[in-house]
Design a protein around this nucleic acid. Structure first.
Length: 405
DNA sequence: CGAGATTCATGTGAAGTATACCTTTAGGCTTAA
DNA sequence: AAGCCTAAAGGTATACTTCACATGAATCTCGTA
């Protein structure tokens, strides 16, 4: 038996043998909470001063945080809140911090679901439907008020929720404290729309955003800094090729200084290099990672979408592939959509609904839909694709599988 | 030729409906004293 | 009589439909220069 002959049992050996480029890949995951947050010292200080009073059993001011995606809003807040929690635990002070992302479909995208989810965070079982919203509020208030505690609610991407659920939700949130006798609640809203709140009811606005903090985008140099620091813990020494971090930073800096994007680029680049069994991450891997990330993002969204959405998107893709058509309009999409429904035995939705679906697909960034007026030819949405054709091809395949075409 | 009216194809808001699920309540049945 | 189960009644949230009105620029109309 020669040395080169690999027994079948060693098929997976490479995953255990220490050929991995990573020490700890989690460090690059967006869920990872680092123990230092560079270039956000000022914001941390501000947050500290705002939530700090909780330690003295004073109600912290409500706070609104503005900043584009990947400017470190969530990490910074989570980090500061974490430190506060640890300190409070040491001193036996009852503080609870609840973090909720309002964008998540079917979790917190309506008023009912938001409050229900909050109540669930405190260990209450709330059915998905059936209860009056008021009732759910009452349940939520009663769990809160059972103990003398300070609660900090962090509502991430709250703008998405307000778009769907309306402003009175904010109003309801502001009166939480009036209903409570023992506990006190302060609300921290996070939004990546700078303009959010500009046309908000002044009363709601003044009570809900007693304080405001702005997170500016990182510049390329700061991004590099962040990447270097994380890479130290994520990768083995000397596996990052010349200029890899610089390139990741540059890419992300172009996208309004999105650190999340930069980290993801770095991680995926590493994964790609690893899969190729290279010993170093090369600049070319970054390019590959860039397109892979975008593809994965779209694919992930499309996969979990209801069939109605998929069918609509499928209609749009087919129209987009037709080179003879210069632009895609709602009417054409709907017509083709009906055809697809017939083909797949799906009960077709009305054009009214499909119109909304197109709007939602636009919101998710899968397509671009702009309302235009074509004068005598009426008004409609002009739809275009924001994803590369190669990805569209994959999306099409996924939908065909899912729809059974 | 230009100001205003017209028109088209669909956007958009409001109200209504179907569905799935919840709680309450009243009745009926069982059980145990 | 008390306890337990069941089914009906009355209620809600959500996704969708129905109805009706709103939009806004290309195009048409018609009066005027």
């Amino acid at each position: 038996m020669t040395k080169n002959h690999v027994p079948a049992g060693n098929l997976f050996e490479k995953f255990l043998s220490n050929n991995s480029l990573f020490i700890n890949k989690n460090v690059l995951q967006s869920s990872y909470l680092p123990n230092t947050i560079p270039h956000r010292e000022e914001q941390i200080r501000q947050i500290r001063d705002i939530i700090g009073p909780a330690l003295r059993r004073e109600k912290p001011s409500n706070l609104f945080i503005y900043g584009q995606t990947g400017t470190g809003k969530t990490v910074t807040l989570k980090y500061t809140a974490d430190v506060l929690m640890k300190f409070a635990n040491e001193k036996n002070i009852l503080i609870k911090i609840v973090y909720l992302n309002c964008k998540m479909k079917k979790v917190a995208d309506t008023e009912y679901r938001l409050v229900a989810q909050l109540a669930r965070e405190f260990g209450k079982e709330i059915p998905a439907t059936g209860l009056p919203t008021d009732e759910v509020y009452k349940i939520f208030f009663s769990v809160l008020d059972r103990e003398k505690q300070t609660v900090i609610l962090i509502l991430d991407e709250i703008d998405q929720l307000i778009d769907k659920a309306g402003e009175e939700l904010l109003y309801n949130l502001t009166r939480i404290n009036e209903e409570l006798k023992h506990a006190q609640v302060s609300i921290i809203g996070i939004t990546n729309r700078i303009s959010f709140g500009e046309n908000m009811d002044p009363r709601v606005k003044s009570s809900l955003s007693e304080e405001e903090i702005l997170f500016p985008p990182y510049n390329a140099l700061q991004l590099q800094n962040i990447l270097f620091q994380r890479a130290k813990n994520a990768f083995k020494p000397n596996v990052l090729g010349e200029g890899v971090i610089e390139k990741c930073s540059a890419y992300a800096a172009k996208e309004h200084g999105d650190a999340r994007r930069a980290l993801e680029l770095l991680r995926v680049s590493g994964e790609i290099a690893e899969r190729k069994e290279h010993s170093k991450v090369a600049i070319e891997d970054v390019d590959e990672a860039d397109s892979k990330i975008e593809k994965d993002r779209v694919l992930d969204i499309v996969e979990v979408q209801p069939k109605e959405f998929q069918a609509t998107l499928y209609a749009i893709i087919r129209l987009a592939k037709n080179k003879k058509i210069s632009a895609i309009y709602t009417g054409d999409v709907y017509e083709l959509y009906r055809g697809i429904c017939k083909e797949t035995n799906l009960r077709p939705l009305t054009q009214r609904r499909v119109s909304d679906i197109i709007g939602e697909l636009d919101m998710q960034g899968i397509i671009n839909a702009k309302v235009i007026s074509k004068g005598r030819q009426g008004r409609t949405r002009e739809i275009s694709f924001s994803i590369p054709p190669e990805t569209a091809e994959k999306v099409e395949k996924i939908i065909r599988d899912s729809l059974g075409i």
